[in-house]
């Protein structure tokens, strides 16, 4: 124990700000929400103990809960690969050694800085409305536009496009990863007459796997937590016809619009379990497709 402390004390000291924040600010609410998830609590009266009532209602009777899961999973399944492919593509372009690369890097990163902001969500709505810019451009090519956001069949895709557009941070990480791949590998492959395609799948992908893994985990968690854009674009309700009823939007509505704080707490815990489950799956499968350079040493 003493030895452990001596070896790690410095680390823990450096972690104190985080520990303080966690124990003073986060831990209390976390425990409170766990307790509340077993109660009915409308924020005006006192919480009433309800056992597993919230969880039972959620899984057996709440149609909107399942709808929210469907919307969120569809979004994660579409947006995460779309964003990662976009990010990798742009990173590979930038890796070609363009001039003034830092300028392009900044330009491409910009949408990610703006992405979570309310302004972009509002802008998005303007772009994709019936008389929005997107339809104006389509009209130039003689294509009859649609009400992309107000139509439940297409609204989710507008958010996937938004997610794609915000490829900045995974792109930077990919770029760093690509820079780390020794150039002589490509040169050797070139001499052997290996096609570009083959180089990509045999050299780039395997060596980039740890970075892809990292981005995949981070972006999946991020996608499950999507809130502000969906909230703004759907007017806070998940409209049209619940097609934008993201899990977080559903949760917010239950908590702050219908004042079912207990039920919302239960929803939050289920979300935590879902994210935990998917992260665990990604980690477990990673040993089959991710290998680290230093493991071979």
């Amino acid at each position: 124990m003493k030895r452990f402390l001596r070896r790690n004390a410095a680390g823990y000291v450096f972690l104190t700000p985080w520990f303080l924040g966690f124990f003073l600010l986060a831990l209390g609410p976390i425990l409170a929400s766990l307790y509340l998830s077993f109660t009915r609590y409308d924020m005006i009266g006192a919480p009433r103990w309800d056992g597993l009532g919230n969880y039972e209602y959620m899984f057996t009777r709440d149609r909107r809960f399942w709808k929210a899961l469907t919307v969120t999973f569809s979004y994660v399944a579409l947006a995460v690969p779309a964003r990662l492919i976009m990010a990798l593509g742009v990173a590979m372009l930038l890796d070609k050694g363009l001039r003034s690369i830092s300028f392009y890097r900044a330009i491409f990163y910009l949408p990610s800085l703006l992405g979570a902001s309310i302004a972009i969500a509002i802008l998005w709505r303007q772009l994709f409305e019936l008389d929005g810019v997107v339809n104006d451009v389509l009209a130039l090519f003689g294509i009859q536009g649609a009400a992309w956001i107000s139509n439940p069949d297409t609204s989710l895709y507008t958010l996937v496009v938004l997610a794609m557009w915000q490829f900045g941070s995974p792109m930077l990480i990919f770029l760093a990863g690509l820079r780390g791949i020794p150039k002589d590998l490509y040169e050797a492959a070139e001499i052997d007459g290996t096609s570009k395609r083959r180089q990509f799948f045999r050299i780039t992908m395997p060596l980039l796997a740890p970075v892809i893994f990292f981005n995949l985990v981070l972006q999946t968690i991020e996608a499950f937590k999507t809130f502000s854009s969906a909230f703004i674009i759907s007017d806070g309700t998940g409209a049209p016809a619940d097609s934008l009823l993201f899990y977080t939007v559903f949760l917010f509505n239950e908590a702050f619009k219908f004042f079912r704080m207990g039920y919302a707490s239960a929803l939050a815990w289920v979300l935590l379990l879902i994210i935990g489950f998917f992260t665990a799956i990604t980690f477990l499968t990673s040993k089959y497709w991710v290998h680290y350079e230093n493991e071979r040493d």
């Binding site: 439940p152 309700t237 409209a239 049209p240 016809a241 619940d242 619009k257 219908f258």
Partner: peptide
């Protein structure tokens, strides 16, 4: 109580009616 939520449900179902789905 709950009438506010009923309003949301009405708009939601109404959307499907209007779009003919």
């Amino acid at each position: 109580k709950g009438a506010g939520e009923v309003r949301d449900a009405f708009a939601r179902t109404g959307t499907e009616v209007v779009l003919g789905s």
